[in-house]
Design a protein around this nucleic acid. Sequence first.
DNA 1: GTATAATAGGAAGGATGATTCCGCTTGTAA
DNA 2: TTACAAGCGGAATCATCCTTCCTATTATAC
Lengths: 223, 223
Amino acid sequence: MIPLVNEASGTNEVDGDRPRRADAVRNRALVLAAASDVFAEQGARAQVEEIARRAGVGVGTVCRNFPTKQALLQAVLNSSYESVLETAERALESPDPAEAFEQFFITLPGFHVRHRAFAEQMANELELAAQPVRDKLMAAISELVTRAQDAGALRKDIGPADVSMLLSGVAHATALAGDLQPMLRERYVRIILDGLRPGDTAGLPGRAVSFAELRRAKQRHAK
Amino acid sequence: MIPLVNEASGTNEVDGDRPRRADAVRNRALVLAAASDVFAEQGARAQVEEIARRAGVGVGTVCRNFPTKQALLQAVLNSSYESVLETAERALESPDPAEAFEQFFITLPGFHVRHRAFAEQMANELELAAQPVRDKLMAAISELVTRAQDAGALRKDIGPADVSMLLSGVAHATALAGDLQPMLRERYVRIILDGLRPGDTAGLPGRAVSFAELRRAKQRHAK
DNA sequence: GTATAATAGGAAGGATGATTCCGCTTGTAA
DNA sequence: TTACAAGCGGAATCATCCTTCCTATTATAC
């Protein structure tokens, strides 16, 4: 389902060691692909056995390749981050900042919806693996926001973390709406985009917070 | 935490049967109150033992009063619905429809956040218990929306289900933001309210859907 | 083709958490 | 005050999943 970017261990080589058996390499890839689908559909609660079944291997094989379910999930999420990052970077290439921002804004919730586990992760932000890709993604979002603001297409009192949260809210709200989902998703994104335009509206309460600040608050909260 | 309205079995009478023992009645109420707190804090994943501990009773007592955890959750949610319904009806009493709508709109996500299990239920909508209160709540929301539209304070292409989903999105997005949460919640509600005002903005894609239609889509989706 | 070690599969083990059960306690009524 | 059934607590049971382990299989090197 997700195009797996930069698939770990996609080759026969294990650094500094013997080459692994061809079937082992293939099975690992099958597991990763199956896990990607299953986590996307069912979120992090998906069962290991289901993943094994879809990959056409035994549970033992899954667990040998990924010591815990958590590790498997992280591997899958890493791919998801890379995929979203790619979308953001493609948007950044657009010459029109307003256009770039809107485009990204419309695309992201759809991705969230199609990848439940990813959405959960974006919301929870508790695991620290995948940090490098994550950071790059946030940098890209920040850039999109700043450019849109400089172009006068986005109110100034908005920060990148606000964008990220609003989008995940839309994704969550529409996640279970069945076949109405794409329509509703776009409706809500449009409503929010309207609310985000600079204009004669009153200033927002509070202040734009950075991703870092938001993360600290979440950690404090998690006790 | 929630003021329990209309607490089931708050009296000694069991219809058509002997009165129940006083301590049993008291314990049932304690369990319900504890469950309300615990589900509010932790969502539906809260453990029965934790509820029993906070109620100061054994797990056996919890399970005797409510045959399954699901039943207990339903009882709690019923109270939550009544409480939200009360808020909506209070808002309807306000003479200014725009004011009434905004007031409700600002209050609801806070309620969601404080009552995790309720928010999950609003989003999932899979249980059919609590249907009567639910229906009344939706009627009240519809009324708030229609009045606000007639007063020219709300764009016309919005339906009550849209309002409900947007609010639950805000709740979800901000749920884990720790002490920043109230601030962010209000920011996002304001942004959405701005986006919902009638104005020179382009029309929304799709169409406003009713609660009933939304429910059907969800059921279809749940397979 | 054979020897060997890597890998597979899936049953057994372990952890967590809901539900049941049973001997003891206590409220209620005569 | 006593008798007794309702109700209590919490250990035992059951269910669900993740993880480990052991035997059988199979890729690979010679």
